[in-house]
């Protein structure tokens, strides 16, 4: 589904990603872990098409297409979804209007008829139950005045509504208390399916107790220095990142 080869990216001439290789197949859950500044969030943003980052080398194939050639909206329409670490507040635009525009943009791209307000309302209410969200949230401006937890839940809600093929979650656990973390994890787990790939970017192992990954990769200084199964995450929880950082430094 997703094949990242030798990906290099920089921001304002500062090299952040220094040769990432990673393959995510349908049905798999991958976790990317790493210390602060290792490039985890950059990887997520580059996949979604943020133009602040410049890809200097390498390639990314998504469902057989060159992902890097596509505009951010085209990536989303093809089925890539990024749950933001810092969801943006948009005063004056209701959640419902925003989501209908998004869903209809995808449907139009697929050649499906667009949903009117009533059809969409029916569809969306079912999805809300999944995340235990207050229906009044639909009429509120996107993320405006939301608490940290509400913003993250709203991201997972958007993800559930858009039914992407590949979900990328950027530090979705940051700033969540344990109850909110469980709700978010339940929402993600409900989306696990044999047709869908999930890439979870996180600093802490905590989230992976609830979203159990098939593969864990450790990113240090822009490179994946170690890959393993869920036990690698537990090992990191115990030993920290220091030993891997030391190893990476020794190799460089």
């Amino acid at each position: 589904m997703l094949k990242i080869s030798n990906l290099h990216a920089s921001v304002e001439d500062k090299k952040i990603l220094k040769g990432i290789d990673l393959q995510v197949n349908a049905g798999e859950v991958h976790a990317i872990m790493g210390p602060n500044g290792s490039g985890k969030s950059t990887l997520a943003q580059v996949l979604a098409g943020r133009d602040a980052y410049e890809v200097t080398e390498g390639s990314v194939e998504f469902l057989g297409q060159d992902l890097l050639e596509m505009a951010p909206e085209e990536r989303a329409r093809e089925g890539l979804f990024l749950a933001f670490q810092y969801p943006v507040e948009i005063p004056g635009v209701s959640n419902a209007y925003f989501l209908r525009s998004a869903v209809n943009a995808v449907r139009k791209h697929r050649g499906e008829p667009e949903l009117d307000a009533i059809q969409f309302g029916k569809y969306i209410r079912e999805k809300m139950k999944l995340l235990d969200l207050d229906p009044s949230l639909l009429n509120r401006s996107v993320n405006e005045g939301f608490s940290g937890g509400e913003k993250k839940r709203n991201e997972i809600f958007h993800m559930a509504v858009m039914e992407p093929k590949l979900c990328v979650l950027d530090e979705t656990d940051s700033g969540l208390d344990i109850d909110a973390l469980k709700i978010v994890a339940d929402g993600v787990n409900a989306l696990r399916s044999p047709d869908r790939g999930i890439l979870v970017v996180t600093h802490y192992q905590r989230l992976l107790n609830y979203i159990v990954p098939d593969f864990v990769h450790v990113l240090v200084d822009g490179r994946i220095v170690k890959s393993g199964d869920k036990n690698l995450a537990l090992e990191l929880e115990e030993k920290g990142y220091g030993w891997l950082e030391a190893e990476a430094a020794a190799r460089a």
């Binding site: 909206e73 990536r75 004056g92």
Partner: peptide, 21 residues
């Protein structure tokens, strides 16, 4: 970028944000 990452095209994203303003 937030709007575009949800599939909304550049022109429509600009229109929505301008309207909201």
């Amino acid at each position: 970028f937030y709007l575009r990452s949800r599939g909304i095209g550049l022109a429509e994203a600009q229109a929505i944000l301008t309207y909201a303003f």
